[in-house]
């Protein structure tokens, strides 16, 4: 009985992983792809780990699978955040048909603040040129 439930969970997990990968191919830009990559793939992997836990119960393997779940939660979310932030600061803009972008102003301000001294120097240079 436990084995059946575990196998069903693992199948559902693999299905969600597949959806996540499909999204990775179909969505238009980095940020939307990250959405599918973090959500679907993380839940899919959780389902697989849960299935393993259900199959094996409170043994060495099962408990390891169970405590991998919170570790995966932190790893996936932090990775998604840093990838999105890094992509934006590197210069990838949002998809052309996006609705709003309130982050752009903030990034410009940050960059202006960061190279304040350099900006002043280059400003002088361009002025004289």
């Amino acid at each position: 009985m436990n084995e059946t439930i575990g196998l069903i969970l693992i199948s559902v997990g693999v299905l969600f992983d597949l959806f996540g990968c499909l999204g990775l191919v179909r969505f238009p830009d980095v940020y939307n792809r990250l959405q599918s990559a973090t959500k679907c793939v993380t839940l899919g992997t959780w389902c697989i780990l849960l299935g393993v836990f259900v199959c094996y119960g409170f043994t060495e393997i099962g408990v390891k699978a169970l405590i991998s779940i919170p570790l995966l939660f932190f790893a996936a979310t932090v990775a998604a955040h840093s990838l999105a932030r890094g992509a934006y600061h590197y210069g990838f803009r949002l998809w052309g048909k996006s609705a709003v972008d309130e982050y752009e102003k903030e990034v410009k301000q940050m960059e202006a603040g960061m190279d304040n001294t350099e900006g002043a120097a280059s400003g002088d240079a361009s002025g004289s040129a």
């Binding site: 959806f19 499909l22 999204g23 969505f27 940020y31 609705a99 709003v100 309130e102 982050y103 903030e106």
Partner: peptide, 15 residues
């Protein structure tokens, strides 16, 4: 959203 043939998305960054 992934499986829908028309890809119903309307993305943006909000504060």
């Amino acid at each position: 959203r992934v499986l829908h043939p028309k890809l119903p998305i309307n993305p943006g960054i909000v504060k």
